[in-house]
Simulated scan of single mutants.
Amino acid sequence: MEFRLGTLENTDVQQLLNEHLLDMEKTSPPESRHALNLDGLKACDVTFWSLWNDGRVLGFGALKELSESHGEIKSMRTQSNARGQGLGAKILEFLIAQAKLRHYTTLSLETGSMDFFKPAHRLYERFGFEVCAPFGSYTEDPNSQFYTLKL
């Protein structure tokens, strides 16, 4: 398995991103959707990686720089047929390592608060993320759960 930087032009990556955005559309009201679309992932303050094995995209994740010391995890996703194989943990571990290489002291994320997102909550908590107040430009939202990790 390998991580590849900036593969947003790949149609398989775009298809997985579209699946991610459709899931967010099904599970979260419009005002509570914070997943980045293709253009958002191309922003200058966002770095995108995808995870590949044998020529097949298995998942992706991104880091958004909020400040010199604070990063945000964006758009983590694994292929639905590859879930339960530890890929989410592999992606999260990679993103944490990248944040450390950038010398961030804090890594945060926003995810949904609904049952659909409970597996993600368990993953983040397993890696030491703690529930926190909204950060950056986020505001209180009953449909959002915020997490932070001190690095």
Rank of each mutant, 00 (worst) to 15 (best):
E2D: 15
E9F: 08
N10D: 05
D12K: 11
D12Y: 12
D12M: 11
V13F: 02
V13N: 04
Q15S: 14
Q15T: 14
Q15P: 00
L17Y: 07
L21R: 08
L22N: 13
E25M: 01
E25I: 03
S28R: 11
S28F: 12
P29W: 05
P29F: 01
P29M: 04
P30W: 04
P30E: 03
E31N: 13
E31M: 10
E31H: 15
S32E: 00
R33L: 02
A35Q: 10
L38D: 02
L38K: 07
G40V: 08
L41W: 05
K42F: 01
C44D: 14
V46N: 05
T47V: 12
T47W: 00
F48D: 03
W49M: 06
S50L: 02
L51W: 07
W52M: 12
W52K: 13
W52N: 13
D54K: 07
G55T: 10
R56G: 03
V57R: 06
L58G: 04
L58P: 06
G61P: 03
L63W: 07
K64A: 03
L66Q: 09
S69T: 13
S69Y: 10
S69A: 11
H70T: 13
E72D: 12
I73L: 03
K74S: 10
S75T: 11
R77T: 09
R77I: 03
T78H: 09
S80R: 12
G84T: 00
Q85M: 04
Q85F: 03
G86Q: 01
G88E: 09
A89N: 14
A89D: 14
K90D: 08
L92C: 09
L92N: 10
L95S: 06
I96T: 02
Q98S: 12
A99K: 07
K100A: 11
K100Y: 03
K100R: 11
L101D: 15
H103E: 14
L107R: 08
L109A: 00
K118W: 04
A120T: 14
H121E: 08
R122A: 12
Y124C: 00
F127L: 01
F127Y: 10
G128V: 05
F129P: 05
V131L: 13
V131S: 15
F135L: 09
T139D: 12
T139R: 14
D141E: 02
N143L: 10
N143F: 15
N143Q: 13
T148D: 07
L151G: 09
